[in-house]
Design a binder for these strands. Structure first.
Length: 437
DNA sequence: TCTGGGGTCCTAGGACCC
DNA sequence: TCTGGGGTCCTAGGACCC
């Protein structure tokens, strides 16, 4: 009954590890990666964790410690992480085609083809191979449900020496021991609110949750909570999702590098986001039936209380053409933009996505639609080949993210702050050449 | 001065219908 | 005019994930 059906393979401090692959001198040193705009800490090496730097800490609050302790700081580089992630996945795919890509740094593997006594060696082999082929260290947790595999994985990361990085929960005793060592807030599916509530009831560990009555959990934590409970008890409620389902909503937004007051600058930003968003939309073969544009002032400022406004429109017919989306997005923006405010963020959301093949066309629009479709396909392939900035619209502004600027004032204010940027080692040929010479 | 971005699922309650 | 039950759909808000 306790056969290990699932393994969770999770990259250790993934973003940090990606940088270390190309700068091995950073091994053993404290390293952190910041969110977009150098806002807050989103990845830490073990050495940085040991310094007490917490996940989500705003950079300005840890600047001093970073200086004192010689913490190496990076701006985030999603092109690099995305490419490294693909390498890890294709390595795992050599082991089994039955795998679920759960996030940029985690995969579930199906183990049902293994005999119980083979699981541990298999986990070790996976770990060694990924390390050798990609340079990325991973941990492997295996158990009979996904939630228990998550538990196992957390504990695997803490193990040292010969046991480092792989943990299999093969029987009731091992499961109980693991659950007793797992804090309630560390259980997959238990967030801040549930954890707080459970602690008030003196439930402090996963083991405590495991022993609560089903009825109470169903009533107070909904069916998702009940699923977590049952999975902790060893009853699988979630299967592998081999094919990632099409997104139901797609959103692209960024904070500005500096506050922005001019409509023209906000338009450049929104247009850039819209092109990205439309590219994602076409990437999954969908069309959008409605779209929302939102615009924010600083939510941390006490004076500007109306920090969020948004507007949505229903499109006459679903589209994936960025020309149409740009037209609508900028019209909505003009509606909600108010002069005299300092904005910090703009974004676009696409909803009610349907497969492009299901869009109903009438006689008058069919030809136009076909022409636009061809145009978009051409844009997509050119951008794939020459980079996303290779083809753009006047309304996006002349400058690119990644351009070098003589001084800060020359850079459009909406562009991301990336004080600690690193090269895209694996995806930008020009930069690889620069590094080598 | 400086605080990320992008998603999913579930539930309760209201509107509406027969 | 008064009455009841049951169903669907939509939306907003909350909770969760990485």
């Amino acid at each position: 009954m306790n056969t290990s059906r699932f393994a969770l393979v999770d990259c250790n401090s993934f973003y940090v590890s990606c940088h270390r692959v190309f700068q091995p001198e950073l091994n053993g040193r404290p390293v952190v990666v910041l969110s977009n705009n150098d806002g807050c800490v989103i990845a830490r090496s073990d050495e940085a964790k040991a310094l007490g730097i917490k996940m989500g800490t705003p950079y300005f609050q840890m600047k001093e410690v970073a200086g004192q302790e010689q913490v190496k700081v990076f701006s985030s580089n999603y092109e690099l992480y995305g490419d490294m992630s693909r390498r890890v996945v294709s390595t795992l795919a050599q082991f089994t085609p039955h795998l679920e890509i759960y996030s940029i740094d985690e995969c579930f593997l199906d183990l049902s083809h293994l005999a119980p006594e083979e699981v541990k060696a298999y986990g070790k082999k996976v770990r060694e191979t990924v390390r050798q082929w990609t340079g990325i260290p991973v941990s492997v947790g295996a158990a009979c449900t996904k939630t228990l595999a998550k538990v196992a994985n957390r504990l695997a990361k803490k193990q040292t020496g010969k046991e480092a990085g792989v943990l299999v929960l093969a029987n009731q005793q091992e499961v109980e021991q693991a659950l007793r060592q797992t804090e309630i807030g560390d259980v997959w599916g238990i967030g801040r609110q549930h954890a707080k509530r459970l602690r008030q009831m003196e439930v402090h560990t996963a083991w405590g949750l495991r022993n609560l009555p089903e009825g109470w959990v169903r009533k107070n934590m909904a069916v998702t909570g009940l699923r977590t409970l049952l999975e902790l008890r060893g009853e699988p409620c979630q299967d592998l999702e081999l094919a990632s389902p099409a997104r139901k909503n797609i959103c692209t937004s960024r904070s500005f590098g500096r506050p922005v007051a001019e409509l023209g600058h906000v338009k450049e930003a929104l247009s850039t986001h819209t092109v990205r968003c439309a590219t994602k939309l076409r990437g999954q073969g969908s069309c959008a039936s409605s779209l929302t544009v939102f615009l924010m002032t600083n939510r941390f400022a006490v004076t500007e209380h109306d920090y969020y406004s948004s507007r949505t429109i229903q499109l006459a017919r679903p589209t994936s053409s960025e020309l149409e989306l740009l037209r609508h997005a900028n019209a909505l923006l003009e509606d909600i933009f108010r002069a005299g405010r300092r904005y910090v963020k703009v974004g676009i959301m696409l909803h009610e996505l349907i497969p492009a093949s299901e869009v109903q066309l009438d006689l008058f629009t069919a030809r136009n639609e076909e022409k636009q479709g061809k145009l978009m396909a051409t844009l997509d392939s050119l951008r794939q080949r020459f980079g996303h900035h290779a083809l753009k619209y006047g309304v996006q502004g002349a400058r690119n993210e990644g351009d070098t600027f003589e001084n800060e004032a020359e850079k459009p204010p909406w562009m991301l702050k990336r004080e600690f940027a690193s090269p895209c080692y694996t995806t930008n040929i020009r930069e690889v050449l620069v590094v080598k010479t």
